[in-house]
Design a protein around this nucleic acid. Sequence first.
RNA 1: GCUCCGAUGGUGUAGUCCGGCCAAGCAUUUCGGCCUUUCGAGCCGACGACCCGGGUCCGAAUCCCGGUCGGAGCACCA
Length: 489
Amino acid sequence: MDDIVKSQFPEFLEVERKVQEHRLPDLRNVKGEVVMRLAPSPSGPLHLGHSRMAILNDEYVKRYGGELILRLEDTNPANVDPDAYTMIPEDLEWLGVNVTKIVPQTDRMDLYYNEARKLIEAGQIYVCLCPQEKFRKFKLESKACPDRDVPSEESMERFGKMIDGTYGQGEAVAVVKTDLKHPNPSIRDWIAFRISEAPHPRTADRFRVYPMMSFSVAVDDHYLGLTHVLRGKDQLTNTDKQKYIFDYNGWAVPEYYHYGMVNMPDVVLKTSIIKQGISRGEYTGWDDIRLGTIRALRKRGYSKDTFRRYWIESGLRESDAEFSWDIFNSMNKEIVDPGARRFFFVPDPVEVNISCKSGLKGSMLYHPSNPEMGRREYTLGRDPVVYVPSEDWGSQDNGSLIRLKDLAAVVKNGNYANCQETNLPPSKTKIIQWAPHDSGDFAVLKPDGSVDHGVAEPLIKEAKGVVQLERYGYVNIVDGSGTAYFLHR
RNA sequence: GCUCCGAUGGUGUAGUCCGGCCAAGCAUUUCGGCCUUUCGAGCCGACGACCCGGGUCCGAAUCCCGGUCGGAGCACCA
């Protein structure tokens, strides 16, 4: 029956398979090509969380064609790491995200100022001289600050004084008039510009008045010609704020999508915490494998395709979710396994003396499913000493039969063992890995900060990339130093 | 507290717009079994879900109302 279907209606099977595959929903209102953006702040390299917005946006630009703009939101000098300007594009490139244009916001300060002046003139932005506390109190009480009604010429002059340094940090802000009665206090008359005298890592002291995110985002989304914006639900109120700028200017609003928040367990993502840890020497760097940065995950051996598959499957849902390492790892395993050569690693090794009537030779496939990848072979002689995992060896009683994989079946007698010549059926026998006596020390660094010490078969010295240590798990080997990074089981 | 979102097994998703083909699919986890000189891969099987209460309807996971729970935002951060 299957054969008939296969031979006569192959297209039917095709269709069925496609239905199973996860596919992102179509974007609404697409007219020809799309223009989308990634808008991280350059405070550090990208992490697992960022990879979602990067890949989702990239997927849509790949589907419809168009532009993918990397907009570096660097308008808070206190929060900028100069290295991030190079690390972020590196991370994106590795992820296979095709950025067509890079735009740092500090290149566009004149544009923000000009747009501000336009709105000041129209009476839609005013400059408030209230102390911070007072401004906030007015807001919460839905009251107008006295500066709200000064003539626009006066506000314009004050804006000039913000820029020329007459006002110091904290003494003046430019505020967008919205609706003082708006139910959400954060949307009532929100701040568009503030003074920051902190030196900017990129522009030094060239500017002292910086736009707030909601202002620069609105201006940029318009002038950069964004058609669709994908962002997290945490941006929902910002979207409402930004709509005022669009309305005041009569600009068309891009299509906004807000996907749910994803909680990522067991991993450090917060840039400020990582930075602190690095400077204190607790972490070796941005790629410390205990971290959730893209470069750390990359170092552990994750494939870029895993990120893509995972986030496509997660889609654009608005409900919150829990990140699942189980699923992420399982996807990665599927991608990485076909190319992962197998090796024996013996953690916590114990020496066993084997007695044999004839010489022993170990011969193991590099990959059982792909025999064409060849074999690794070790000639051990007649009464060799081998290493075995103490945990496995110790769990077996004296007199029990144990199979040393692809080497011999032996009967345990303390730290000695006798070869068993008979060809007993292999099932039900404990099968363990082993390493010859001339094996080198090997250590696996794990993401929880622990290290598994042991020995690994000599040929592992030639290995690079992701390998499977049989019965132990997948690891990534980056050099011949006798260490590897733990990937997953 | 205020504002806004959301709710399908342990986890991630499909289905919800346009009610019946859903006694709910897929993936992952866990547990069994098969295969096998890996506790890997593969194959087979099992457990496991439509938040609750009302309403509309011949018929509701899907529509309406109320509740509950979860999350996000409420900065001179992004």
